Simulated scan of single mutants.
Amino acid sequence: MRVARWATWGAAAGTVAVIAAPLGYRIGIAPLGPAFLLLAGGVLLIAVSAGVLGARMARETGPKGWTARSALVAAVAVGAVPVATLVSSLGAPPIHDVTTDTEDPPSFVAAVALNTPGRTDYGGPGLAERQRAAYPGLSPAILSVAPADAFRRALAVVRRMDWEVLATDPDTFRIEATDRTFWFGFHDDIVIRVAAAGEGGSRVDVRSLSRVGVGDLGVNARRVREFLDALSEE
Rank of each mutant, 00 (worst) to 15 (best):
V112T: 13
G218L: 05
D205K: 09
R159W: 00
A55K: 12
R222L: 05
A12D: 08
S88W: 12
G62S: 11
R5N: 01
A92V: 11
V81M: 07
A55I: 07
G118C: 03
V3F: 04
W6D: 01
L37C: 08
M161Y: 03
L90I: 15
R207P: 00
D189K: 05
F151E: 04
L37V: 13
G213T: 08
G79N: 06
F182D: 09
G51C: 04
G215P: 00
R5A: 03
S88E: 14
R2H: 13
A68N: 01
V87K: 04
V87A: 12
P140E: 13
G62D: 13
T168E: 14
A92L: 07
I175K: 01
P31G: 02
S70A: 15
A154C: 04
T85I: 14
S88T: 15
R5W: 11
T100S: 06
L44E: 08
R26L: 07
G215K: 00
E103S: 13
A195N: 04
A177E: 00
A177S: 08
D171E: 14
V145T: 10
A58H: 06
M1I: 07
A148G: 00
V206S: 10
G198F: 06
R2V: 12
V145L: 06
W183H: 00
W9H: 08
F108K: 12
P117I: 12
S144Y: 09
M57C: 10
R159K: 15
A58Q: 07
V191E: 05
V165N: 01
G42Q: 03
R153F: 05
S49H: 07
P106D: 08
V145H: 03
S202M: 06
V48K: 07
E234A: 13
R207M: 00
I19P: 11
L209F: 06
L228E: 02
